[in-house]
């Protein structure tokens, strides 16, 4: 079974064409940028995600500033926001070299205004401050982001909820429905339906939700015993055999 990180580094949905671009030297060819950009747009419509392919776009932008397309960058960052437990968002930012302010006044670059909001949203998710995340996301400040961008990313809000569920599953065995509702930005029937879709159960009397056991929310005290590896002793054994030879 492919490991968590191998699915991240090469998602099963990646086509051979894209794989060739991600892993080969064709990734540096500026004329391939549109293939990768189309693939990104496909990701926004299909709830698929391919971090390395998107980084390849940013790499082309880094080397060829003329190719820069702010909308593409914003979509890449939105997709990267919800890629827990991987730090994709910062990996993407890391490739955004400083660029001169937009040269064309007719088409203002939306990235400089949206980047601080996206960064704040990312930090709130990192800090598990989920209610604050939703508050900022739903605020007037983020209106452009919602109306022009996240609306185009199919399943964005559910992707955020998956990040929440990851964190909750690891830390809780039982959680109050009010608290979980605030994390998920869901209440009433929506919350019940969502929780049921996860296969979790709500106690109707106490409104407490039981989180099924998993390796992260199952804890146990253990004593770790020392495990001595042969290589640790190799110096001593070598010395002993050399000496034995020397003695003969």
């Amino acid at each position: 079974m492919p490991s968590l990180a191998s699915k991240w580094a090469s998602p099963p949905t990646r086509t051979p064409l894209i794989e060739n671009l991600v892993s080969g030297v064709d990734r540096y060819n500026p004329s391939n940028v549109s293939i990768l950009e189309d693939y990104l747009y496909h990701q926004t419509r299909s709830e698929e995600y391919d971090c390395l392919a998107n980084l390849a776009i940013l790499k082309l932008y880094q080397f060829n500033p003329d190719l820069y397309n702010p909308d593409v960058v914003i979509y890449i960052l939105i997709k990267a926001l919800t890629s827990a437990p991987f730090p994709d968002f910062n990996l993407c930012i890391s490739l955004l070299d400083e660029r001169p302010a937009a040269t064309n006044p007719d088409e203002p670059d939306p990235l400089p205004t949206l980047l601080p909001i996206l960064t704040s949203l990312y930090n709130l998710l990192q800090q598990c401050r989920f209610p604050a995340f939703w508050a900022l996301y739903r605020s007037d400040e983020a209106e452009t982001l919602r109306d022009n961008y996240t609306v185009e990313c199919v399943g964005f809000e559910n992707a955020v909820r998956e990040v929440v569920i990851r964190a909750v599953k690891a830390a809780f065995t039982r959680i109050g429905s009010e608290r979980l509702g605030a994390y998920l930005d869901l209440s009433g029937g929506d919350l019940t339906a969502y929780v049921e879709s996860l296969g979790w159960s709500i106690d109707p009397a106490t409104e407490v939700i039981a989180v099924p056991p998993n390796p992260d929310n199952h804890i146990e005290s253990t004593v770790v015993q020392e495990n001595i590896q042969l290589p640790q002793l190799s110096k001593i054994i070598t010395h002993a055999t050399q000496n034995a030879r020397g003695a003969l």
């Binding site: 968590l4 990180a5 437990p85 809780f172 065995t173 005290s221 253990t222 004593v223 770790v224 020392e226």
Partner: peptide, 27 residues
């Protein structure tokens, strides 16, 4: 780049509604 999720801490805990339970692995 490959890898799996591992636990890196000797101190682990879990929250049962409002109660925090703690377990520590000692060496």
């Amino acid at each position: 780049l490959d890898g799996q999720m591992i636990s890196t801490s000797d101190l682990d805990f879990v929250i049962n509604e409002n109660m925090v339970h703690i377990a520590e692995s000692t060496v």
